Amino acid sequence: MGIVVAKSNLAPRGTAEHPDIEVIQNVNFAIKAGMAQFFLDANQVHCDVEAPGNDLKTPDVADVARNFSVQVACEVKK
């Protein structure tokens, strides 16, 4: 389990003077599962923890995770 805590800004970076500046993509920062478990425990949120299973290939993990994954987006507005 991972929780994304920050993501690069996808706004264009180029200017008329320097149009070749690339936008960084697919860079995320997440917290470890143990920290998420600590947070849930500290806030009395129940969750089940299972022993690790067999290694899966990436497409298989995506198929399984699609059944219980949701996106929650929080933005800071100035």
Rank of each mutant, 00 (worst) to 15 (best):
G2M: 10
I3M: 14
I3T: 03
I3Y: 04
V4P: 05
V5I: 06
A6F: 02
A6P: 00
K7F: 00
K7G: 02
K7S: 05
S8V: 11
N9W: 11
N9A: 08
L10A: 10
A11G: 04
A11S: 08
P12C: 00
P12F: 01
R13W: 05
G14L: 02
G14I: 03
T15V: 02
A16V: 11
A16S: 13
A16K: 12
A16L: 15
A16N: 11
A16R: 13
E17Q: 05
H18L: 01
P19Q: 02
P19T: 01
D20N: 03
D20R: 00
I21K: 01
I21A: 01
I21C: 00
I21E: 04
E22D: 10
E22L: 14
I24M: 02
I24D: 02
I24L: 04
Q25G: 06
Q25A: 06
N26F: 01
V27N: 02
V27K: 01
N28I: 06
N28V: 13
N28K: 09
F29Q: 04
I31Y: 01
K32L: 05
A33E: 09
A33D: 06
A33L: 10
A33C: 09
A33S: 10
G34R: 03
M35C: 06
M35E: 11
M35N: 08
A36M: 13
A36T: 03
Q37P: 03
Q37S: 13
Q37G: 07
F38E: 15
F39K: 06
F39I: 15
F39Q: 09
L40F: 14
A42K: 15
N43F: 15
Q44I: 09
Q44L: 13
Q44G: 10
V45W: 09
V45Q: 12
V45F: 13
H46V: 10
D48C: 06
D48N: 14
V49T: 08
V49L: 10
E50D: 10
E50K: 09
A51E: 09
A51N: 12
P52V: 10
P52K: 07
P52L: 07
P52Y: 07
G53C: 12
N54Y: 07
N54F: 05
N54Q: 15
N54E: 15
N54V: 13
D55F: 12
D55C: 07
D55T: 07
L56K: 06
L56C: 01
K57G: 02
K57W: 03
T58D: 08
P59E: 05
P59R: 04
D60W: 02
D60V: 00
D60C: 03
V61A: 14
A62G: 00
A62P: 00
A62N: 00
A62E: 00
D63Q: 11
D63P: 02
D63V: 09
D63W: 05
D63K: 15
D63Y: 04
V64E: 11
V64W: 09
N67R: 13
N67F: 12
F68V: 10
V70M: 11
V70I: 12
V70N: 08
Q71W: 11
Q71G: 08
Q71H: 04
Q71E: 14
Q71M: 09
V72F: 15
A73S: 12
C74Y: 15
C74Q: 15
V76S: 11
K78P: 10
K78W: 02
